[in-house]
Amino acid sequence: MNEYGGGRQLNIARLWSGGLATAVVAGLVILVGALVVRGILGIPVLAPEEAGYFGDAGTGVYAVLAALAALAATGLLHLLLISAPRPRTFFGWIVGLGTTVAVVSPFAQVASVPSQIATALINLVAGIAIATLLNSVAAGALARRARRPADTSDARDDENPRGTGYHSGYRDALNGYPTRHYGGRHRSYDPNAQTRIDWN
């Protein structure tokens, strides 16, 4: 674990395991999006129309690129968490702008308008998935440091200040038998105690 501001520690293993899971999700978003758009809507996206429901090798390459983008975003998040102030805010802005570029870029390619819109929507869903999942991963990877137990060696009762030689009964009982011992000298129980005054 690495130290992080605000009394927290960064769990690197949890961060990168979440990053790997996010990469898998990003790749599946591309594949599922291609299946829905090509198989249900009949729009040729990420591959020629005759390539089938899942497209061709280009669709697989696109899914791998999405997974690599998620891993790169995890590395960026790690760097920001250990070095930047307000790292999750900066991360949100960077990933948001990167998602915007991915959404706009299909409209610069030569393709039909429905294909451009479908590709832009797939990229948008992938970008949102990466941003939201990694933001949750960052929150889970930042664990609070365990506080040291308070030193109670100087603790004392208000009624019995330190230095008087007296301890309260409940505190004595916690450590064993109470230190105050009853000597049995009480007028009502001592047969030799004078209980009345003889005036004769």
Rank of each mutant, 00 (worst) to 15 (best):
L76R: 00
R156L: 01
H186K: 12
N11I: 01
I12W: 06
T99H: 00
I12Y: 04
L97K: 09
A63V: 08
T100M: 15
D157E: 12
G18R: 07
T89D: 09
T74K: 11
L46C: 01
Y53Q: 12
E3K: 13
S188I: 07
P114K: 03
Q116T: 03
L77R: 02
I30L: 09
T100W: 11
V103S: 05
F90T: 14
V103N: 05
H186Y: 13
V24T: 13
D151F: 08
D172A: 13
N200C: 05
V125F: 12
R162T: 09
I30K: 07
R187S: 14
I40G: 00
L174I: 11
R187G: 10
R156K: 06
G27W: 05
F91Y: 11
S188Q: 12
T195V: 13
A69K: 10
F54K: 01
R144V: 10
A66E: 02
D157H: 12
I128G: 08
L174G: 03
T164K: 00
V64L: 12
V101Q: 04
G163M: 07
L97C: 08
W16T: 14
L97D: 04
G96I: 04
G176L: 05
D190K: 03
V104T: 09
P149R: 00
G169V: 11
G169S: 14
R180T: 11
R144G: 05
L71P: 00
G39W: 08
L65H: 07
L46G: 02
G169A: 13
A26Y: 08
I128N: 02
R145H: 04
T59W: 00
F54R: 09
L124V: 10
T179H: 13
A57L: 11
L41H: 03
A138T: 09
F91W: 03
A23V: 07
L31N: 01
L35M: 11
G92W: 03
L134A: 09
F54N: 03
V32C: 07
G165D: 03
T195F: 08
G5I: 14
V95Y: 01
A146C: 00
F54V: 13
G140A: 14
P161R: 00
T89H: 14
D198I: 13
N123E: 09
Q109P: 03
L20W: 09
L80Y: 07
V37L: 01
G33N: 05
M1H: 11
G98D: 03
D151T: 07
A155S: 08
L41Y: 07
I130G: 06
T22S: 06
A139C: 02
Q116F: 00
I82P: 00
V125H: 08
W93T: 15
I122C: 06
F91L: 05
L31A: 06
A118F: 03
F91H: 02
S168I: 09
A51E: 05
R86W: 08
G140H: 15
T119K: 10
G52E: 03
Y4N: 14
R14M: 10
V125C: 05
E159N: 13
L28S: 05
I197L: 15
G6D: 15
Q116G: 14
